[in-house]
Design a protein around this nucleic acid. Structure first.
Length: 641
RNA sequence: GCCUGGGUAGCUUAGCGGUAAAGCGCGUCCUUGGUAAGGACGAGAGCCCGGGUUCAAAUCCCGGCCUAGGCUCCA
């Protein structure tokens, strides 16, 4: 029999018979590994250990030590769910049930489920796990599968489409229950250490809203109860940190019914934080040679026709009729900036022009998508547009990368960088795309940035570098972006005069350092759990008089700290109560003052970490505050041991 | 936009055909406090909006609006 060659993770090659499976290959490497094999990853795709290999395959063996093992386990947990569901509701029609990042789901039809039903299903699942049934793979003729699923049009559709042309299809069996499935699965139900069903929602068959709505049950599974508990704790913490909840508690913002959906109101405390964020980015931009501009919220649709937004995004724009003419709220700031650029003639000596605006934009997002500050109809972008000579792209992008890293260094957030390349639908010639992507790559390489490639994920008008933040709970959020644009300069016929006295086309660079203020605000609220660094904290210091007798001194101390956001707690409460409240309100520093402090002219300092010091000099404290604020330190550190 | 839940005091929620409840917050008073909730009293509710059923609707039905989770979208 002829042999084929597969490539192992360390680059070495392994020869195996041409009908060898993943498991066979593992045994070739070593009997121990063969024994432990759960599944394989072939050319980046998770496959069953029974699947045959092909010549040149990149092979990774998956054991219970692999990262992929949890996916396999969860896929099996989805089967256990389906079996349990059908034990209790035999009429339930199964569709698909894959693993996800956090667990698994299973989409079912012909069954009415409520959250309250989940407990009984979970109990049944635990019985199945307890019984430790072997999980067996069966090959059946495709025709037999059709017969078996005579009354399940979903499975038949899978057989028709996914399994088109196959003679046999695989089933996985545990106990007396089986499901059409490609696998892979763990060897027995007992390997699932812990399961939990989480929520019920709905989803369309194959994710298409034209199709039938199915009932989707989300659950998760782990190797051990301990892992599950850790996961649930993390989930609970995420809920506690929900920016909508903290936003309400700290009176940062609200989205009342009466103002319309997705149109948040910023209250004084919230606006204080936004203003600090804005002041900082304004300063950073000024230093980097940007000129601040301002454009109105409303333009004639002529402008949106010129920019192309009207053709592509008209349905998502807010349009209105004024004096028989159509106007539209701006969904982007760039056409306004391009128009400003177009109001003069420029020489190559003038370039690059760097315009900047904290511009509010309006996009009529789908109603079901709106949520807190994470998805809104009105949001503000710290939007910069650069008009550059093509040969300057690299230098400008490098500078922007520097700005972005400078900015995020103050927020204790990790960041991931991705290069998004040319999508299928795009404008501009091959040459300019290749050159642009090359220049972005050069910046990323020479800057030593770790980055991934999102092939085909660029904008239709140019490639881009996307940043995503990772917060304290390990979640990822869209952040800053740098995008090259060859389209807008064409559409607006932007030109500059070159050294050769000829007209040339500038390239536009769109960039945002925060992304949107709403988004960064949300991320920061949740990342810091509302415990903002001093420079951002809406209330930086609260003075707690021990009794009313100390009110006068308290106000004198407050006046001395007038450059900070300071409040005097003058409610008729005990000291303990005042401290409790200040902690609940997440104030970085408390100053407790009474007769002792008044006589010695000092303050007692307590911070949000419950650290304390008595007899602190007022000047020393004020000077520390100034430094902590100006250096944008993450945590209060006056009382740091 | 679609599917499934939900909208009751400033906030969090109970009540689910028959006189609208609680905790927190708020106000007044007592207490004048020393490091994470002192006490008493009080005010505060078109029960989301519009229709319908009923002797009677916060409660049941229909429509709308908002909201949560999910699906689909995201220049």
């Amino acid at each position: 029999m002829s042999e084929i060659t597969v490539v192992l993770p360390d680059g070495s090659e392994l020869s195996v018979p041409e009908d060898a499976t993943v498991e066979d290959a593992a045994y070739e490497i070593g009997p121990g590994l063969g024994e432990d094999t759960v599944a394989g990853v072939v050319d980046g795709e998770l496959v069953a250990k029974e699947d045959e290999l092909h010549d040149g395959a990149q092979l990774v063996i998956v054991t219970d030590q692999s990262d992929e093992y949890l996916d396999v386990l969860r896929h099996s947990a989805a089967h256990v769910f389906a079996q349990a569901l059908q034990r209790l509701n035999p009429e339930a029609t199964l569709t698909i049930g894959p693993p996800t990042e956090d667990g698994f789901y299973y989409d079912v039809a012909n069954v009415d489920l409520e959250e309250s039903d989940l407990e009984a299903i979970e109990t049944e699942m635990e019985a199945i796990i307890e019984a430790d049934y072997d999980i067996e793979r069966l090959e059946r003729p495709r025709e037999a599968a059709f017969e078996k699923y005579a009354d399940n049009r979903f499975k038949r559709e899978i057989l028709e489409e996914e399994a088109a042309g196959e003679e046999t299809v695989s089933f996985y069996r545990q106990d007396d229950w089986e499901d059409l499935c490609q696998g892979p699965h763990v060897d027995s139900t007992g390997e699932i250490g812990a399961v939990e069903l989480l929520t019920i929602s709905s989803a369309y068959w194959r994710g298409d809203e034209e199709n039938e709505a199915l009932t989707r049950v989300y659950g998760t599974a782990f190797e051990s109860e301990g892992d599950l508990e850790e996961f649930l704790l993390m989930r609970e913490e995420a809920k506690e940190r929900d920016h909508r909840r903290i936003g309400q508690e700290m009176e940062l913002f609200s989205v009342p019914d009466v103002t319309g959906p997705g149109l948040p109101l910023y209250h004084p405390a919230g606006k204080t934080i936004l203003q600090e964020l804005e002041n900082y980015v304004n300063e950073l931009n000024r230093e980097a040679g940007y000129e601040q501009v301002e454009t109105p919220h409303l333009f004639r649709t002529e402008l949106w026709k010129q920019s192309g937004h009207y053709d592509n995004y008209r349905d998502d724009m807010f349009l209105l009729e004024v004096n028989d003419e159509e106007y539209g709220l701006k969904p982007m700031n760039c056409p306004g900036h391009a128009t400003i650029f177009d109001q003069a003639s420029w020489s190559y000596r003038d370039l690059p022009k760097r315009y900047f605006e904290n511009g509010k934009v309006y996009r009529k997002e789908q109603r079901g998508e709106l949520s807190g500050l994470s998805r809104t109809w009105a949001f503000t972008i710290d939007d910069g547009h650069l008009f550059v000579k093509p040969e300057d792209i690299e230098r400008e992008v490098r500078e922007i990368m520097g700005l972005i890293f400078e900015l995020i260094s103050h927020f204790d957030l990790e960041v991931e960088v991705d290069l998004a390349t040319r999508p299928e639908k795009s404008v501009g010639g091959d040459e300019i795309w290749e050159s642009a992507e090359e220049q972005l790559r050069t910046v990323l390489e020479s800057g030593g940035y770790d980055y991934g490639i999102e092939a085909g994920d660029g904008a239709f008008y140019g490639p881009k570098i996307d940043f995503s933040f990772r917060d304290a709970l390990g979640r990822s959020w869209d952040g800053p972006t740098v995008q090259l644009d060859f389209n807008m300069p064409e559409r607006f016929d932007l030109t500059y005069t070159g050294e050769d006295n000829e007209d040339h086309r500038p390239v536009m660079i769109h960039r945002a350092l925060y992304g949107s203020y709403e988004r960064i605000f949300m991320v920061l609220i949740e990342h810091f759990d509302g415990q903002f660094p001093l420079w951002l904290a809406p209330e930086q210091v609260r003075i707690l008089p021990v009794s009313d007798d100390a009110l006068g001194y308290a106000h004198r101390v407050k006046n001395e700290l007038s450059e900070f956001r300071v409040e005097v707690e003058d409610r008729d409460w005990t000291v303990g109560r005042k401290i409790r409240q200040a902690h609940d309100d997440r104030v970085p520093y408390m100053l407790i003052v009474g007769s002792d402090e008044e006589e010695s002219g000092t303050v007692s300092v307590r911070d949000r970490f419950e650290r304390e010091a008595e007899g602190v000099g007022r000047d020393a404290f004020r000077e520390h505050l100034e430094a902590e604020r100006d250096e944008k330190r993450i945590e209060p550190d006056f009382l740091k041991e």
